[in-house]
């Protein structure tokens, strides 16, 4: 308990209380603080007047601007579409050849396509479109469903084995698991398939096995992959003679494929993307291949 005293440094009085040696000065609240207080309050009160703010039982004050975050964003979406309408219109109407020949439209395809591809497709096909581990490479000119921009656009729109009503459907049956071929036959046909893309695999000691595999292939597989094993884009059966693989081209993986079958699932983008966005993506994917000779 001490009495009030004068602080020599600041010239202010203390409040007269002492707590274990701590004292307080009775300095008045600086004018700046009060002004600051008033300024922030004026800001707040103004905001309350113009914007929705105070709850009133079952409703709330709507504010003089009568606005709301949802109204604002809806307007922005509409405005954005209007802003894009001119070029969206052009892209929608133009043929693929026209788009590919038009540098301005191709610039949009490049920038917008990059983003759309990155957010939607890269998860499977990777940012560079080169796929890997069960997802096809889109830059290797080896197309399951056809590499023209129209075919690509169709694949993107409906997807493959997707929930879309018009989805492309494809299935590689599980020959081994479902007992259509015995394990020996699976090995043989796998050896044959492997030899198609690896000619030096056909050594004299393997030639019998490969020939046995060829017979199996012709009776069992050719229906989809064709007599020449070059695939069939109608049913999405890939070419087996080149060295581009979705699931992998080593003997082991080929055996796994033939044994257990495959049913690649490519989602439909009809709901998430607009027709113009899909067209941009189709052109983008197409040009990825063109740029990768």
């Amino acid at each position: 308990m001490s009495v009030e005293e004068l602080d020599p440094v600041s010239g202010h009085r203390t409040t007269g209380h002492v707590w274990n040696g701590i004292k307080e000065l009775d300095t008045p609240v600086p004018r700046g603080v009060l002004i600051f207080l008033i300024v922030t309050h004026i800001f707040a009160v103004t905001w309350w007047f113009v914007m929705p703010t105070w709850p009133l039982g079952t409703t709330y004050t709507k504010g003089l601007l009568d606005t709301d975050q949802r109204k604002i964003v809806e307007q922005k979406i509409v405005d954005a579409e209007a802003q894009r309408a001119p070029w969206v219109d052009r892209i929608e109407k133009a043929s693929f050849d026209e788009i590919l020949a038009d540098p301005k439209m191709m610039e949009i395809v490049k920038t917008t396509g990059h983003r759309l591809f990155g957010d939607n497709c890269a998860a499977c096909h990777r940012r560079d479109g080169k796929g890997r581990s069960n997802y096809p490479n889109l830059t290797d000119h080896d197309w399951i469903w056809g590499g023209g921009p129209e075919a690509i656009m169709q694949t993107i729109t409906t997807g493959v084995n997707s929930s879309n009503a018009k989805s492309r459907i494809s299935q590689m049956p599980a020959f081994g698991r479902d007992g259509m071929l015995d394990p020996g036959q699976v090995d043989n046909v796998a050896a044959y398939v492997y030899s198609l893309s690896h000619p030096d695999y056909s050594t004299p000691e393997r030639i019998k096995q490969i020939e046995a595999g060829r017979q199996v292939f012709l009776t069992t597989c050719a229906a989809c992959h064709g007599q020449d094993a070059k695939g069939n884009q109608e049913v999405g059966a890939p070419n087996l003679t080149d060295n581009y693989w979705i699931y992998g081209g080593d003997i082991g993986t080929i055996i796994t494929t033939i044994h257990g079958g495959r049913e690649g699932h490519m989602p439909t983008w009809d709901e998430r993307l607009t027709p113009a966005q899909i067209k941009i993506l189709a052109t983008y994917v197409y040009s990825l291949g063109v740029e990768n000779p």
Binding site: V9, T15, I22, K23, E24, L25, D26, T27, P28, V29
Partner: peptide, 8 residues
């Protein structure tokens, strides 16, 4: 040092 301002 004493606290600058009790009122603050």
């Amino acid at each position: 040092r004493p606290i600058f301002s009790y009122r603050l």
